[in-house]
Design a protein around this nucleic acid. Structure first.
Lengths: 164, 164
DNA sequence: CTGTCGATTGCATACTTATTCATTCAAGTG
DNA sequence: CACTTGAATGAATAAGTATGCAATCGACAG
């Protein structure tokens, strides 16, 4: 197996993993990659991550652009799972969500630093019918709905999750 | 000397150092602080840095916002203020802003490359009542308002800043 | 004053990441 | 084909970061 191909795919996989889940250490990343059939050592990952110019913050690694990074992880009870199962929106909101507010046909959800990207990924994954699309920054997710009514529904559903 | 005062000043000093020089390790930071008469151990700095939510990238540590990381740092002349006071939106617009345009309940602000993140951070920090949330890319900030009217207000306020 | 509580810190150490060194392999070169 | 060169990688280990624990200090109730 040609090394160079392996590498390209691996970097791709790393980017993908990072955009949809929080990774706190290179070893954790190594285990997640292994489940995808990619088997490398921490040393290699260290080099990969340098190459990808990743940032590391209190909450784990993140892509250089505007992706997630940040705080909070400690015992909040939820989502402490060893994970790798596609994370659910409920879990994400429970773990990272801070507040949600509707604005016309959109809903803005504020999260802890670094929570926006995973939350958006979870929303995308669950494909809510009222959601047309999402955009995530570091700590803010913009959810776009077809109309004001649907946005209202989404807002209240998220608020419920926040309160629980 | 009261511990708590020490700490406040130290965090302050760390922010200042980071914004004006590259720091690659906590031990390096420790040495730099020592030259300023602040003497603490790496352990304490680890805790401080966690508290400041610093990011670590290829180029060293950086403040959580959109500040410098890794490469590029040179001056743009403006807003080189003594800083450390959370940067104001006015300053940011002045330094990075290029144009602003309303779209329904949103306002899109274009900035110079790399200016979006800091501007969004400043907006978040000032917590304008007309702003529900912001999302920033590399050179574009999307500001979400509750409705079209408020978006208009925000747009014109920003335009004023741009012209000045 | 005395005891309790919470915050801050240093020390020692566990844990995580970067780097050195050697190896392997593919692509050129003569 | 034999040799050289450069990229990629693992193993071992150096370098760097986080954390459990105990000590200290100020605030404050009794």
């Amino acid at each position: 197996m040609p090394d160079i191909v392996q590498k390209r795919q691996r970097l791709e996989a790393i980017r993908e993993l990072l955009s949809s889940s929080l990774v706190s250490s290179q070893d954790e990343l190594r285990r997640k990659l292994r489940r995808r059939g990619i088997h490398v050592t921490q040393a290699t990952l260290s080099r990969d991550m340098h190459e990808l110019q990743l940032l590391k913050g209190p909450g784990g690694y993140s892509l250089p652009n505007g992706n997630g990074n940040g705080a909070a992880r400690s015992g909040n009870g939820a989502a402490v799972v060893d994970d790798d199962a596609p994370p659910s929106v409920a879990e994400m909101i429970d773990s990272f969500g801070m507040r949600a507010q509707q604005a016309l046909n959109q809903v803005v959800v504020h999260t802890v630093m670094g929570g926006a990207q995973p939350l958006a990924a979870a929303l995308d994954y669950e494909k809510w019918p009222e959601v047309v699309g999402t955009i995530a920054g570091d700590d803010t997710v913009l959810i776009i709905c077809p109309d004001q009514r649907r946005a209202g529904e989404v807002e209240s559903r998220i608020r419920t999750m926040l309160e629980s």
